[in-house]
Amino acid sequence: MLHIKCPYCGMRSQNEFSYGGDASVKRPELNKEISDEEWDNFVYNRKSLRGKHLELWQHLSGCRQWIKVERDTATHEIFNTFKADEEIS
């Protein structure tokens, strides 16, 4: 079971969180004309990468905040966690 540092609550076990997928995906702006391809990329197409991955988790049984977690998909190593609005360099 992973041990994830919630930026609001501290170190918590994985069973308090739910996984939310790739955090680098940006929803197209409302009312914006976009191509089918752009929309498909937003809705469906994800990189299934091996290695460092920035992903969303929600601290469901805690503060209910959506957070960003930088995790290695192969080793489960967690490098860093961020608040949703935090700038990631």
Partner: peptide, 13 residues
């Protein structure tokens, strides 16, 4: 509820 929180926190803060 999670759906609403997702949009409020991440998409349209």
């Amino acid at each position: 509820l999670s759906h609403l929180e997702y949009y409020l926190q991440l998409v349209w803060p």
